[in-house]
């Protein structure tokens, strides 16, 4: 078996194993939490008999291990359980929310990743000159300001004062046509881009500068190539691995960490869904969200690992 395939198989199985442990943690965590599901459904005035009945019905008296495997078995078959508060199937109600979140994340990523890499290349090209300092300064400022503040500032100026874009995403309909949808999410995408740009741009800059010290960059310089060709052809291919790692971490943030932005812009995504149900103590929904977030995180990091392996010529082309 080629070493690449072995390494990939190793990474993927490790990822699955990790996901399994996370599911145990999520389940154990929600069990340890104080409070009683039956109590919270029936309210403070419920009779002890009613509580006992409900507990039996929901299987809450079974040993935790048995309940865990019942839950896991359901999850593996696509059944995430039913919401305690609404009584609806979690998988289907979460499905549309997840789609919305992915829609927002996709557009934010599509703009910010190429932009960050381009700005990183530009910063290296004009290292320590004004373009580099400007790029670093602006991105550093945007990462330092809390995202909700940026969101409100942007909303105030672009949405309210100059009325260029929709101030909130409150009118977002998943079945609307693509341009209407894009118009709705323009501001959240802008804010998310500002928030994640700095990380990726700075990592691109640092990774390429690191490679620029190598002897083969000198070789390229002595071939008479222009600086931008040296960076693009010789430095960038060798700095993909660290850049992809940061890109993936930021993409994971786009899915998992956008709670604040979704709340600020009233966008019907996963974040809002989670926050709503945490406040209602809807444990099955919280569990399901936790699991989905974990899967996204592990999955994207797995992609980063795989890309690093595939971009390493020593692994791709063994002796």
């Amino acid at each position: 078996m080629s070493p690449v395939i072995r390494l990939l198989a190793q990474r993927i199985s490790l990822g699955l194993l990790l996901l399994f442990f996370v599911s145990v943690l999520i389940f154990a965590g929600t069990i340890i939490l104080p409070g009683d599901v039956a109590q919270s459904i029936l309210g403070q005035s419920a009779t002890p008999e009613a509580l006992a009945n409900l507990r039996r019905e929901m299987g809450l008296n079974d040993p935790p291990v048995q309940r865990y495997f019942a839950w896991l078995g359901g999850v593996l078959q696509g059944d995430l359980g039913t919401s305690l508060t609404s009584g609806r199937d979690i998988a289907s109600s979460m499905g549309s929310r997840l789609q919305n979140t992915l829609f927002l994340a996709f557009w934010a990523a599509l703009i910010s990743v190429p932009l960050a890499i381009f700005l990183g290349l530009l910063a290296v090209r004009y290292r320590d000159r004004w373009p580099d300092k400007l790029i670093s300064g602006v991105t550093l400022a945007s990462i330092s300001v809390p995202e909700f503040l940026i969101a409100y500032v942007v909303m105030f100026f672009l949405g309210v004062k100059f009325r260029l874009l929709n101030p909130t995403a409150i009118g977002f309909r998943p079945d609307a046509d693509i341009f209407a949808k894009l118009e709705m999410i323009a501001l959240p995408v802008l804010v998310l881009t500002l928030v994640i740009l700095a990380h990726m741009m700075r990592m691109t800059r640092a990774a390429i500068l690191n490679v620029m010290q190598s002897a083969y960059i000198e070789t390229a310089e002595l071939k008479g190539l222009t600086m931008f060709k040296i960076i693009w052809r010789h430095a960038f291919p060798n700095s993909i691995a660290p850049v992809v790692n940061v890109v993936m971490l930021n993409l994971a943030y786009l899915v998992v960490g956008v709670v604040v932005i979704e709340v600020v812009f009233v966008y019907p995504g996963m974040g809002q869904y989670l926050v709503d149900h945490v406040s209602k103590r809807d444990v099955p929904v919280v569990q399901a969200c936790g699991l989905v977030f974990a899967a996204v995180y592990i999955g994207l990091n797995l992609v980063a690992d795989i890309v690093s392996i595939l971009t390493n010529p020593r692994l791709r082309h063994p002796k």
Binding site: Y216, E218, T219, L222, G224, R314
Partner: peptide, 23 residues
């Protein structure tokens, strides 16, 4: 630039380090 790599070229001490590993 036209001179470098065209009229005058360079062979370094460590070819192992002077070749780009990714190409």
């Amino acid at each position: 630039r036209r001179l470098r790599g065209g009229e005058v070229t360079y062979v370094s001490q460590s070819a192992a380090a002077s070749f780009n590993p990714a190409k």
